[in-house]
Design a protein around this nucleic acid. Structure first.
Lengths: 142, 142
DNA sequence: CGGGTTTTCTTGAACAAGTCAAGAAAACTT
DNA sequence: AAGTTTTCTTGACTTGTTCAAGAAAACCCG
C-alpha cells in the first residue's frame, strides 16, 4: 500500500508537483509541517535554524512557488501578516482569537467547494467561500 | 416619523455616536456614502476633492475613530489594502473578483450573528463568522 | 460670548512587509 | 561534462500604515 499523500516527505512532494528539489524548499516544507499557520518571519527563522543562512528573499520566492503549485496555502486574516499551512484542498476554515491572534483549524461542516452559496451572487461566478470565525480562545477567555 | 438611522446626515450620525463634528469626519462619511468599499487612498482623494487639502494622517485618524465607534466597518480581503464601508451591524458578506478586485455586498442568508456555527469551536468563544466569496465578476468573466 | 480644556489636525519622519533587479550559484538536460 | 534553465544572494526600493510633537479647532461652562 503506497503512503498517503500527506505522508510524502518534502522531496517526494516537490517532485510529485514537478518542482526542483532544493534545500530551501524542503526546509520550508519541513518548517510548515511543524508549525501550521506560521508567518513568514517564523518560517525564515525555522529554515535558518535547520539549514543555515538563507536570504529572506529566497524564502519569499519559495513560498510563492509552493503556493502557486498548490503545495501550501496562504492565509491572511485581517490585521495579520501572511501565514502559511500545508493543509490544502480539504476546504477547511479557521478560528482566530481576537486577543492573542492564535489560529486553529476547523473542518468545513459541508465538505465540498464552495461550501456555501451566496444568497445573491451579484453576477459573479463563485468558486470558493472563505470563512473566518472570530472569537476568543480558551487561553485568553475567562 | 423619525428618519431611519441610515438616513441621518453625517453630522447627526457623529453626534449620535458622541463624537465631535469636524469637516474631515463629515467628508469621510460622505465619501463613503458615495463609494462603498473605497480604499484609504480613494477616500483621501475624495475628501480632498470635496473639502480641500487634508493630510493623509487626518484621514487615517478619522477612519480609526469612526471604525472604533462602529460608524464604519473596515474590511481587508487577502491581497487587498484596507477598505471601508458604511454598512455596519447588518451582518452582510462580500464577493470579491479575483481578476479586478471589485467587491460587492451579499446579504447574509441566515441573518443573525454569528451566522454560522463552526463544526468544532476548538474551545473558542466565537462571536462572528466572516465570509468572503471568491470568484470572477461579470465584467471580467466570459 | 469668551477663557480654558480637550480633542483633532498638520507636518514630517519612521517602520514593516513585501517586491524588484542583476548577477552568482546550483540543478537539470543531453 | 557542457550548456541551459532555474534558483538564490545581495541590496535597494515601494507601499501602506503608524508614531510624535506642536498648532489649530471644537466643545464646555460660567
Amino acid at each position: 500500500m503506497p503512503p498517503a499523500h500527506h505522508a510524502l516527505d518534502p522531496g517526494e512532494r516537490l517532485r510529485a508537483a514537478g518542482l526542483r528539489v532544493t534545500r530551501p524548499r524542503t526546509a520550508v516544507l519541513s518548517a510548515l509541517a511543524e508549525r501550521p499557520h506560521a508567518d513568514t518571519d517564523a518560517i525564515i527563522g525555522a529554515v535558518r535554524d535547520a539549514f543555515g543562512p538563507v536570504s529572506h528573499q529566497a524564502v519569499y520566492d519559495v513560498l510563492r512557488v509552493l503556493t502557486d503549485a498548490g503545495l501550501v496555502r496562504r492565509i491572511q486574516p485581517t490585521g495579520s501578516v501572511a501565514r502559511y499551512e500545508l493543509r490544502v484542498g480539504d476546504n477547511h476554515h479557521h478560528v482566530v482569537c481576537r486577543s492573542c491572534g492564535t489560529i486553529a483549524d476547523v473542518d468545513c461542516a459541508v465538505g465540498d467547494t464552495p461550501c456555501l452559496t451566496a444568497s445573491d451572487d451579484r453576477g459573479f461566478v463563485i468558486d470558493e467561500a472563505e470563512v473566518v470565525y472570530w472569537g476568543v480562545c480558551s487561553g485568553c477567555g475567562p
